[in-house]
Design a protein around this nucleic acid. Sequence first.
DNA 1: GTCTATAAGCCGATAGAC
DNA 2: GTCTATCGGCTTATAGAC
Lengths: 195, 195
Amino acid sequence: MARTAGSHSALTAPRIREAAQALFAQHGYAAVSMRQIAAEVGVQVGALYNYTSDKQSLLFDLMSSHLDDLLSARAEDQTEADPVQALEQFTRFHIRFHARRPDAVFIAYMELRNLTPENFATIEAMRRRYEDGLSAILRDGQAQGAFRIQDARVATMAIIAMLTGVNTWFRKTGRLSLSEVEEIYWGMIRRLVVA
Amino acid sequence: MARTAGSHSALTAPRIREAAQALFAQHGYAAVSMRQIAAEVGVQVGALYNYTSDKQSLLFDLMSSHLDDLLSARAEDQTEADPVQALEQFTRFHIRFHARRPDAVFIAYMELRNLTPENFATIEAMRRRYEDGLSAILRDGQAQGAFRIQDARVATMAIIAMLTGVNTWFRKTGRLSLSEVEEIYWGMIRRLVVA
DNA sequence: GTCTATAAGCCGATAGAC
DNA sequence: GTCTATCGGCTTATAGAC
């Protein structure tokens, strides 16, 4: 397949995504320039606009594809119907999924205010769908008498904040392995809600 | 007391702090210009530099005085020696203190990466001192057999993430009052750690 | 203490050559 | 598809008048 000299689109597109993700996570969307992203990729700034219409859509694409990944990975992972087992599955899934992509997670939480109103609404709806999955498990267990929960919506927010907080301190080279962390958190969450 | 026309330092200084705090919380440090802050205060940009050496120290001052407030308010609040009562006191204090200053809390969590390395180290040390207060309570209760905790450091991070997460969803005009939120969270945290 | 004016430079995005 | 050059506008911070 003949290819024009200097044509590397199949390689350049993902490299732009990766460079933007790393730089946005490290310095913040507003503090990163298109020139910095181009330099990281090894092209000139003009070349970026062959792949993205503007800086905003670079951010939106990163966030929406992260949440797409999250929702589809979760849909695939969840197999347990029993509320207690479903909650354990959710706990371990959330920790593992988020620990493996700290940059994407960080951006998804930190850069919401840099989205346009339309993009913000889209992202928030996706996040809400994920939260609703946990709420459904909690209400299910509540209805069956398996969980003792005062307020399911508050418990949802508390559990997600607690689990996502792992990313602020967990390091692969640290004192605890990821499976040890999973064990400890499942132990805490079990005590928090299981009757 | 004679005062030069246009001299308002006693008023201008706090107004700059308040404007910077509101704007940094809403748009992010990197996205806010000194001109925007000046416009919000009602002065020209040059006047700002009578009160702050540069933009960075405006951010650092906001963050360090927030953490100063947090540490001294906490020192004053904590009176209980019994681990269970001390933990309840910590829970209620954290929720109340943070709910009352959402902008300062938001900045303290979101703008860490925009601090110079030296300023970052100072802020991190203060945050760590606050966390250590909770860790001490947990280890104390663990030693006395009042708490059943697998890992005190992890429990510390989990509880703080859970409590600080209240700020992401709590609204004064919402379904729950602040005291109801306090009750619900203390219920969850009690179950999480009390033997 | 506040103002205006300015320095020196970076910003996002585009046009047109190759 | 990538390059160079450029537009118009914005940035932090400072100098000097009042």
